[in-house]
Write a protein that binds this DNA or RNA. Structure first.
Length: 511
DNA sequence: TTCCGACAGTGGGGTCGCAAT
DNA sequence: ATTGCGACCCCACTATCGGAA
């Protein structure tokens, strides 16, 4: 198969807005893909590279060589070159990677170059990722989308499923059941505005502490333990203490879902940055472990001693978890059998408040009868976190891309410091509707004092109301704090910058 | 030889608009 | 009306490499 065929499908998928049409275009290509090329082709069209690390990005893609006149590159040789780029390391690696990349681009036609650039920079922007690629695969082989999806979630890899079904037909989907040692796409939670809303939505449910750490999936098979992150990256070597905790459980084999988090002596959570830094440390694991041990805390059990538990209701899975994991290894939890009862609601509120008082992020509310929906951001898990509202001053704005092209999209936010100067605290592009974007683009251009390629700097006169989950320490911004997950609510034309929140008010959220 | 900056690739994330149901 | 998906980009952090000190 030629790279040109893939690039052509990309163009086609990007050109249509309809999802069915995108799926149909993907299906046509997959149907004529040789099974041995399928893992590469389908992964590319899901917007990713099979190689996790390539070592080249937008910088290396700048100033590409002139495109080739005719399409000769095959999928196989393109993938082989990308793999070689990914393998290249050591002194001189940067130049060699760039040489390999430019050699590849020189043999690619203009559309092929565009496709490769989008793929490598992670900005394919075709309006289709894993979910639609999986659906396209289902159409190509005559399987139901649900069956393909389940296999992908349990098999952990779209590419492997594609190769199997293209070679052996839909019957091959049966091979992809949960297996200890093979990561499963984790179940995700949706959000709710308040605890009451979550309780109303779910009915009988359990409340669990939401710990501000890193999600881990732990597979134990006898003496063998493997640990995976939310994106199924293996991190076993970096987390010896999690491995040890898994080996202490009273089981032969198990697949557990949980969180790792750095706690202080009193059991209170340390800043998220410390946990994330520790999980990211690979070079001196022993040193990092000595400086900051992490605590694994489990909340779900997907399999135990040869039994798959995914389709059991939340409460049945939890009962199994209780059997194998001791108290401190499990999240704190409260069962709410009847959310309409005033006493149980009060207990739920109190659980939430105690959890926050202990320094945690919030609570997760889980429907008592829900199965474990691997890979879904389902309605049966709902997270509830407190939000804070701030009025900040717009200092500048950056031009958007894609569907936001032509709009000032990314706002630079500031607040007044004690000495009267305006200090930048962070940026946001979230929460802006088309109406807000249109209005803001016009208003900010009126206020512009300085126009750059990237956007405009403005007279600091426009106040914007933002919601944040909190603030965190920052070395990037002069006040030493920055916003966490800021999103715009509305512009406050009724407020002057003097009436906006101060840096001190923002810093107070650090606690 | 050591230090520092730039880049790449992780982790965490909310809300919008659109298509499909 | 609701749901699922992809796009929009943020933050901090670690690792890697090249080149300056």
């Amino acid at each position: 198969m030629l790279l040109a065929d893939v690039a052509e499908t990309w163009r086609e998928v990007a050109a249509t807005a309809g999802r069915s049409a995108k799926v149909a275009a993907l299906a046509r290509l997959f149907a004529e893909t040789e099974p041995e090329r399928a893992p590469v082709v389908i992964t590319w069209l899901a917007g990713r590279l099979p190689q996790r690390r390539l070592g080249v990005g937008w910088r290396a893609l700048a100033e590409p060589p002139p495109p080739a006149g005719s399409a000769r590159l095959t999928v196989a040789e393109t993938d082989a070159t990308l793999a070689e780029i990914g393998r290249t390391a050591g002194a001189g690696a940067e130049a060699r990677r760039r040489r390999l990349l430019h050699g590849l681009l020189a043999r690619a036609t203009e559309p092929e170059q565009s496709f490769l650039a989008g793929l490598i920079s992670g900005e394919l922007r075709q309006g289709a990722l894993d979910a639609l690629a999986a659906e396209g695969l289902a159409v190509a082989v005559g399987a139901t989308p649900a069956a393909v999806r389940r296999s992908v979630m349990l098999g952990g890899s779209l590419g492997a499923v594609a190769e199997a079904v293209l070679a052996r037909g839909p019957a091959a989907l049966a091979e992809f059941t949960l297996r200890v040692g093979r990561p499963v796409a984790p179940m995700l939670a949706s959000g709710a505005g308040s605890l009451d809303e979550a309780l109303d939505r779910l009915g009988p449910c359990a409340l669990e502490e939401k710990l501000d750490g890193i999600r881990v999936q732990v597979h134990r098979d006898g003496d063998t333990v493997r640990i995976y992150t939310r994106t199924l990256d293996e991190v076993t070597e970096r987390l010896p203490e999690v491995r040890a905790a898994a080996l202490e459980l009273a089981v032969e084999s198990a697949v557990l879902d949980g969180e790792v988090i750095a706690l202080d002596e009193a059991g209170r959570p340390r800043p998220f940055q410390e946990t994330a830094g520790r999980v990211g440390s690979r070079l001196d694991v022993a040193g990092a472990l000595a400086a900051l041990p992490l605590s694994p805390v489990f909340f779900d059990l997907l399999a135990v001693d040869g039994r798959e538990l995914l389709d059991l209701p939340t409460e049945a899975r939890h009962a199994e978890l209780v059997r194998i994991a001791p108290d401190p290894r499990r999240v704190r939890r409260l069962l709410v059998t009847d959310p309409s009862s005033a006493e149980q609601r009060a207990a739920a509120r109190e659980f939430n408040e105690r959890t926050l008082a202990r320094g945690h992020e919030g609570v997760l509310v889980k429907a008592a009868d829900a199965p474990y929906s691997a890979g879904r951001r389902g309605a049966s898990w709902v997270k509830v976190k407190p939000v804070y509202t701030l009025d900040l001053v717009v200092l500048a704005a950056e031009w958007g891309h894609g569907r936001r092209a032509g709009w000032l999209s990314n706002l630079h936010l500031g607040a007044r410091d004690e000495d009267g100067s305006l200090v930048m605290l962070g940026k946001t592009f979230k929460g802006l509707t088309d109406a807000l974007l249109t209005w803001g683009t016009e208003r900010l251009q009126e206020l512009a004092v300085d126009r750059e390629r990237w956007g405009v700097r403005v007279r600091p006169e426009l106040v914007v109301e933002v919601r944040v989950d909190g603030v965190q320490r920052s070395s990037r911004y002069p006040a030493g704090v920055t916003l966490r997950f800021a999103r715009v609510v509305r512009y406050r034309e009724d407020k002057t910058p003097d009436e906006a929140d101060s840096v001190a008010a923002v810093r107070a959220l650090l606690r």
